[in-house]
Amino acid sequence: MGFTLGMDVISRNNVKVFGHGSQPMVFAHGFGCGQHMWRYIWPAFENDYKIVLFDYVGSGGSDALAYNTERYDSLHGYVQDLLDVCHELGLSKCIFVGHSVSCMVGVLASVKAPELFDSLILIGPSARYIDDEKYTGGFKQTDIEELLEMMEKNYIGWSNFLGPAIMQNQERPELGAELTESFCSTDPKIAKQFARVTFLSDNRKDLVNVRHPVLILQCSEDIIAPVQVGEFLHRQISNSEYKLMQATGHCPHLSAPGETIELMSEFLTNNPWK
């Protein structure tokens, strides 16, 4: 239901499929980035799994013309992107690996179409970023408004993210191959709407509906998804395993790929469903 017909999902979402295994491992990037975020992680799994990378519409190398402000006005449009990719490739029993906001995209998709998924690996997940009386999300409404303003300021020099200086980085030639592809969201308006959708959404009530085995990778000192948030998720999702990482910050897949890979592998080997 709601499957987007008449559109080439593969190019729309810049889908990449490779690897030597049969079970799909689908990587979903977070807010502000694209599939490149995963490049330190997937090499560890490409021998045993079918690796699927994609960009949400409006991010990375996706087709920004396919962006629809109504569709992407809530996480459900992003959920549809993920489901479209799975349907288009005929995937089932996917191991979903999501970072940041993608964790909730994966959660919602797994509730909507459980048959597509085998297990979920959530890196730095949060179901609600803004505090209320009984819940600590880590932010106040005003923080988020300031963020939106700051993003706008940084898009004055937006070319910094895509500009020629970055495209031809002489010092890091190993990055050369992917520099032709854009890195962040290509359109400030899209990025701003994505930020609003990400930081203002509330998916706490959806957590109890998750039926798949879940691994929660919680970073130490992550200001975007603080430890209390990870623990909250762990309590709400009955079939979840919780790992507090030594890695700090919000991007362990970039800053501590070794630890990330190790914990993922451990979960996948122990997962009795596999």
Partner: peptide
């Protein structure tokens, strides 16, 4: 966390 560090880490600047 969402833009600056990933950019620095991936592009070196």
């Amino acid at each position: 966390q969402t833009h600056f560090f990933p950019l620095l880490r991936l592009k070196g600047q």
